[in-house]
Lab assay of single mutants.
Amino acid sequence: KEQQNAFYEILHLPNLTEEQRNGFIQSLKDDPSVSKEILAEAKKLNDAQA
């Protein structure tokens, strides 16, 4: 469930490039146990690119 939530949120971050988004999603698939950390990174990058 946590992985699904992170997946959904990353898909809807407006400021990520397609490449960045795909990278985060691939990381989620590779290691779902760190989905919280991956989501935090994605949000940080999204904010930095706002």
Rank of each mutant, 00 (worst) to 15 (best):
N46D: 03
L13W: 02
K43Y: 15
E19F: 14
L28Y: 05
N22S: 13
S35F: 15
Q26H: 12
S27Q: 03
E9Y: 15
E2G: 07
E18Y: 13
N46M: 02
L13N: 01
P32E: 08
D31G: 09
L11S: 09
A40Y: 15
H12I: 08
F24G: 00
N22M: 13
Q26G: 06
K29H: 08
N5D: 11
K36N: 11
T17K: 04
L28H: 01
I10R: 01
E19W: 15
N5Y: 14
D47A: 13
H12F: 10
A42L: 01
Q3P: 14
S35A: 10
F7V: 13
S27V: 11
K29D: 06
E2R: 03
Q4K: 06
Q49G: 06
A42S: 03
A40M: 10
Q20G: 01
D31W: 12
Q49F: 08
V34A: 14
S35K: 07
Q26K: 05
E2F: 02
L39K: 03
K36Y: 14
E19I: 04
V34C: 06
G23W: 15
E19N: 08
S35E: 10
N15T: 04
Y8T: 07
D31E: 10
E37W: 15
E41C: 03
N46V: 02
Y8S: 04
L16K: 00
L39Y: 07
D47L: 13
A40Q: 13
V34F: 12
L28V: 07
Q49A: 08
F24Q: 00
L39T: 06
L28C: 04
L28M: 09
Q3V: 05
Q49R: 05
E41N: 13
H12V: 08
E18N: 11
F24N: 00
K43H: 12
S33A: 07
A40S: 11
A48L: 15
G23M: 15
E41Q: 12
V34Y: 11
Q20I: 02
E37G: 10
Q3G: 04
I10G: 01
E19S: 08
S35G: 04
A48I: 12
Q20R: 01
N5W: 14
E9F: 15
L11N: 09
S35R: 04
N15R: 06
E41W: 15
N22H: 08
K36M: 11
L39P: 00
A50R: 05
G23I: 15
E41L: 14
Q26E: 06
S33C: 04
E9M: 15
S35I: 14
I38W: 03
F7W: 14
N46A: 08
L28A: 03
T17L: 05
D31H: 13
D30L: 15
L28P: 00
K1V: 15
A6P: 05
A50C: 04
P14Y: 15
L13D: 00
I10W: 01
R21I: 06
E41V: 12
A48Q: 12
S27E: 07
E9C: 15
S33D: 11
K29W: 13
L16D: 00
A50N: 11
L39I: 11
K1D: 15
N22W: 15
A48W: 06
A50T: 13
D30N: 09
E2T: 04
N22P: 00
E41D: 09
L45K: 03
H12C: 04
Q4A: 10
N22R: 14
K44W: 11
T17V: 02
K29L: 09
Y8P: 03
F7M: 13
Q26W: 12
Q49Y: 13
A48S: 13
L11I: 06
K36A: 09
N15H: 13
E37S: 10
K43N: 12
G23R: 13
I38L: 08
A42M: 01
F24S: 01
E41G: 06
E19Y: 10
E2N: 05
Q4C: 08
E9D: 05
I25C: 02
E19P: 08
A50Y: 12
K44F: 11
E19K: 09
L11K: 08
D47Q: 14
N22F: 13
D47T: 11
E9G: 06
E18W: 15
D47C: 09
F7C: 07
P14M: 13
A48V: 10
P14I: 08
Q4E: 12
E19H: 12
F7I: 08
